[in-house]
Design a protein around this nucleic acid. Structure first.
Lengths: 200, 200
DNA sequence: TTCAAACATGAACCGGTGTTCATGTAACCC
DNA sequence: GGGTTACATGAACACCGGTTCATGTTTGAA
């Protein structure tokens, strides 16, 4: 396994980026096992051997994709909730942003989920870092009295799980997803839970 | 691809069952791509070729595992919530049962999740049938006034997602999971959501 | 006991793919 | 413009695993 070194010329930087983008496309469509290096380099318009100039093996490029997507997703959600007036509004905005992200880049979403099997550590890191940030926000909101007290970590994971499942069912599997409706209904559940109103 | 026919003798029935059980073990541990037919037949104590007497190919046995587990899981949850006095109690019992099931049979849980990539249709059927049953229960509870009104399907999927995420984080990834604590906290979220108490 | 159908075996077949390498070409610095 | 480093190429290598098949053994009904 040769050590892939970082590119040092403009051409090298471009080639590496092209191969990474091709891997995102091919692995996102076909999945990790079915995506061959030959497929990836063909999509990138380079020779097979070029791959090994920039990446030491197939799993390394996959891990880099997962890492990159972690950054993209966190940044996207952070921006989406940046000017929410309070935590409950942030929950709505974050969920909406996530579902729209899944709709726009299903390949990325697939790659992250596949990491559970291809590179469990990367998968765990991805969600742990997301969950930690989420829980910190919940703690801050609790301190401000914007939400009720409770275990922030458990809540964070529960809410992430909700978002993932809704993304599967109502974005990935639906032909014409009505994201707003899903967000509205889910947000009511997040805010008030299942108990009937005292008035009812 | 030869057509694998159903076994007709006692020996045949036993062999087939042994191979299926071996597949559950090996695929649950190593995952679908890494689990070779040779691994499976070795674990089953049979010759390689015997596999193809009972299953036409590797994906077929995987699909059968997913199907079988769908039945097991649904039955298990149904029994767990059978004598819950109302829907909110059923939510607690069902979540606890699911998390304990994940703790007891992590290999089965892994196989179901891997079906997302190996056999997407089987995966979708698994969760759709689960989700349909869940939603029906929520509708019945809503009619009885046990829970607030809302879209039962969306709620069902949101709640399934919560359970899955909590299973990942607090059962699969934790060394010494404290399932009761997770159930308690999650149940409060399910019941009351995040909004602060009116009294607070 | 007999015999046809069912089952068991594992070596061989077959296609595929991750990785390497010897040979060549382009980029950049002095 | 010469030379060193960086990069590009694709055929060849090495290995692996799903599937088949010809040959044998067991089963169970008559």
């Amino acid at each position: 396994m040769a050590k892939a070194t970082a590119p040092k010329t403009r051409r090298g930087i471009e080639r590496r980026a092209k191969i990474l983008a091709a891997a995102e496309t091919v692995m996102g469509e076909q999945g990790f096992p079915a995506a061959s290096i030959a497929d990836i380099t063909r999509e990138a318009g380079t020779a097979l051997g070029t791959f090994y100039i920039y990446f030491s093996n197939k799993e390394e490029i996959f891990r880099e994709l997962v890492l990159e997507m972690g950054k993209v997703t966190r940044k996207m959600v952070a921006e989406a909730i940046a000017d929410a007036p309070d935590r409950l509004a942030a929950e709505r905005a974050g969920l909406a942003a996530f579902l729209n992200f899944v709709a726009k880049r299903p390949a990325l979403y697939r790659i992250v989920e596949e990491a559970r099997f291809v590179d469990p550590e990367a998968y765990q890191r991805y969600f742990t870092s997301f969950g930690d940030a989420y829980a910190a926000q919940l703690r801050a909101a609790e301190a401000k009295g914007e939400i009720s007290p409770g275990d922030a970590d458990i809540r964070a994971w529960a809410l992430m799980g909700m978002a993932k499942a809704l993304g599967d069912r109502y974005v990935i599997w639906d032909d014409v997803p009505d994201i707003d409706r899903v967000v509205n209904e889910a947000h009511r559940l997040i805010c008030r839970g299942l108990v009937p109103d005292a008035a009812g």
